[in-house]
Amino acid sequence: MEVLVGGAIVVVIVVAGFAAPLIAPYRPDAIDFARLLSPPSGAHLFGTDDSGRDVFSRTLYGLRVDLVVVLLVTYIPLPIGVVVGAVAGHVGGVVDAVVSRLTDIMISFPFIVLVIATVAIVGPGLTGVAIGIPLVSWALYARLARSQMLLLREQQFMLAATTLGFRRSRVIFRHGVPNLLRTCLVYSTVDIVLNLLVLAGLSYLGLGQQPPGAELGTIIAGGESNLLDAWWIATLPGLVLVLFGIGMGLLGDGLSDDETRSNP
């Protein structure tokens, strides 16, 4: 049930984001001076901001930007980390020691500080975020894949593959990685929410998407000064973030329970 509910929430939000040009009733930068700070209504579902822009349309377009960036920064480092961790866990010895120390170093850095430092070097915008987050994310997946491989390499099917003389690469990538990949994918449902919050937080601080570009963090930051008079500008896009997090959380919990039942 958790998988169905969480999956339904995520699918609706993802489809709405990527179909923004078809769903949004207005362009994200369309200005209507006759409707400044207009509350939610039939014409403007999420109301308008202090420039008369439709908040619902900007939320959809901003959601599309966030989803594209978050999918990239989550699922590009995932296979890199899985491969590095799987090789280290199976080979052991010096390779394992080097990879373990390297992942320890990367994980020990304050995550958000490292991303902000990358943005400071590259400059404000999504490019710095897209570089900074994967610098650390791969290490988390490598640590997880290594720990799983340490268990898998002692399993009978892995020992049998080694005894039969299969190449180490075949043992790792054909027999090992498919069995540990599901755990990493379950973890990615949590990671993708964290990355989305980091992206929105950096944009809120002015380090991510730059105005007037539509992005959830930018929209929320733009509504801060009018929070008491026009609560909908910051609140409703924020609720979209919360709803997406709930959906991914339910999806991850359901997948985790299914994995536990299939591997008692």
Rank of each mutant, 00 (worst) to 15 (best):
E215H: 03
F244A: 14
S188M: 03
D257C: 06
I76R: 05
S262T: 11
D96N: 15
L159S: 00
F244G: 13
G85R: 01
A145L: 02
L207F: 02
G206Y: 14
I133W: 01
L37Q: 10
G206L: 10
R35D: 07
V95T: 14
V69N: 07
L159G: 00
L135G: 06
D32C: 02
H44R: 13
A34Y: 10
L194C: 02
I76T: 14
R58D: 04
S169T: 15
V177F: 02
L202N: 05
V65S: 13
W231F: 14
G217T: 05
G176R: 00
Y204V: 08
A221E: 05
H175Y: 13
L251P: 05
P211Q: 11
L180W: 07
S256A: 15
P40E: 06
G132W: 12
F166G: 02
V119K: 03
G89T: 13
V119T: 13
F244W: 14
F157H: 13
V186R: 09
P212I: 07
V10H: 04
E259H: 13
A43W: 04
L239D: 10
T235Y: 12
V198A: 12
P237K: 12
S51H: 11
G93Q: 10
L181W: 11
M149D: 00
M1G: 12
P110W: 03
L205M: 15
N226T: 05
P264G: 07
G165K: 01
G208M: 08
R174F: 05
I172D: 02
D29E: 15
M1L: 07
L78D: 11
V99G: 04
V91T: 12
L135W: 01
I105D: 01
L144V: 11
G201Y: 11
L71E: 07
F111D: 04
G208I: 02
M248P: 01
A117K: 08
V10R: 10
I13T: 09
T118Q: 02
L207V: 09
F33G: 10
G222E: 00
L194W: 12
S225N: 09
S51W: 07
L239M: 14
V70M: 09
V70F: 02
Q209P: 08
V119F: 09
F56V: 04
S41D: 12
